[in-house]
């Protein structure tokens, strides 16, 4: 048994997600990602089942593991009760711990997610508050979103929100004592360690790629690169 397989076994989602796969391919048949990308969850599970160290390492460094959309449709349909999407989560977690994620275009995007959603969680207490969904980064949200974004106080007030104010309600200000508890939870459970790993490996990769990297924020070449780069070599 390979060492990487041992590391995967430490993730409870891996234990839950993979019993014995009989390679029927139902997961691939139902998978939205398999329809869009060069992606085959059956193949991934098959590779993992070989426990082959080299093949597993190649997978951890590949584009493939980042294609899943986490819809969990595979869980409903697998006749053996496997969940390839949970196996994917264990692979992605390990890929980040070992720094392999920066070897792939799709893996490098983890830096962009950490700098946006990851920062929002600890700064605001929300993953995607209205004021952090900038139309410049989300042109697909259309003119109505631009209108909401530009008139956020009046819109939230009309719709019964409690924007950045004390008390309960939609988009209320999250009190500092609650943010402090979140902070402590991240500290105790390794949340900051994971953020640190994403940051450190990304900084190293930015150096290798000759792209500007800043310790904070999204105004730097590396962020813009990973957020927008699409080699268009992922589809079928």
């Amino acid at each position: 048994m390979g060492k990487l397989y041992d590391l995967l076994l430490q993730d409870i989602r891996f234990e839950e997600g993979l019993n014995a796969c009989m390679n029927c391919g139902v997961c691939t048949a139902i998978c939205p990602a398999a329809e869009f990308y060069k992606y085959d969850p059956r193949e991934i599970v098959d590779t993992i089942q070989t426990k082959d160290e080299e093949k597993t390492e190649a997978l951890l460094k590949s584009e493939t593991i980042w294609y899943c959309g986490q819809c969990m449709s595979c869980k409903t349909r697998c006749p053996r009760g496997n969940t390839p999407a949970l196996v994917i989560m264990a692979l992605r977690t390990l890929s980040q711990k070992l720094g392999y994620f920066t070897d792939s275009e799709k893996g490098r995007q983890q830096f962009a997610i950490k700098r946006t959603v990851g920062e929002n969680i600890l700064k605001y207490g929300y993953c995607v508050p209205t004021y952090a969904v900038d139309p410049k980064m989300h042109p697909e949200q259309g003119p109505i979103w631009e209108h909401i974004f530009n008139n956020i106080d009046d819109v939230m007030d009309r719709l019964g929100g409690n924007l950045k104010k004390k008390g309960s309600g939609a988009l209320r200000e999250i009190h500092q004592k609650n943010l402090d508890e979140l902070d402590k939870i991240f500290e105790v459970t390794g949340g900051y360690k994971l953020y640190g790993e994403i940051e450190n490996y990304s900084e190293k990769k930015a150096g290798e790629m000759g792209l500007e990297f800043k310790k904070e924020g999204i105004d730097n070449e590396y962020f813009r690169h990973v957020y927008t780069c699409n080699s268009d070599n992922h589809g079928k």
């Binding site: 993730d11 993953c127 991240f186 949340g191 994971l194």
Partner: peptide
Amino acid sequence: GIGYHSDIVSFET
């Protein structure tokens, strides 16, 4: 949850 399913937040967290 959005952080969890985009793999920047661990299950333990």
